[in-house]
Design a protein around this nucleic acid. Structure first.
Length: 122
DNA sequence: CTCGTGACTGCTT
DNA sequence: GAAGCAGCCACGA
């Protein structure tokens, strides 16, 4: 092997990991920014998850609206058009939204072991 | 390099 | 509940 050859294959970027994990979130369920980051192998980096959503390529049509703030609160600024759009998307999937809040005990996604292992294979 | 800015969180008033 | 704040971290000015 040439000494300058990269001995390691290219790693998926943190953003890619976030997007990939987001794709696993099932219809009608939600995750928090922090949870999404954790599941993507980026513990404690909730703001990274938020940024990943904002930068997500539209052609990938990710379920960005299934990501909400800790405690079930919609954290998109109310002044943003995305705020209402997120609520509409969630309601279309049967998720109840009251006062900009989602009942986490009812809708939060909790991946089982098989799903986690599937993702590790990525 | 420093600073301000978030689609964040958790803790304290 | 609401508001403030420190910790957080990538980004751009």
């Amino acid at each position: 092997m040439h000494p300058l050859d990269d001995p390691c294959p290219p790693q998926p970027s943190a953003l890619e990991k976030i997007w990939h994990t987001l794709e696993q979130v099932p219809y009608g369920r939600v995750v928090t920014y922090g949870q999404l980051a954790d599941l993507a192998g980026q513990p404690g980096r909730a703001r990274l998850a938020a940024r990943a959503l904002k930068l997500a390529p539209t052609e990938r049509s990710l379920p960005w609206y299934r990501v909400i703030g800790a405690g079930g609160k919609i954290t998109i600024p109310k002044t943003s058009p995305g705020y209402q759009r997120q609520i509409e998307h969630l309601r279309n999937e049967g998720v109840t939204v009251n006062q900009g809040r989602v009942k986490m005990s009812e809708y939060q996604w909790q991946p089982d072991l098989a799903e986690l292992l599937w993702q590790l294979d990525y």
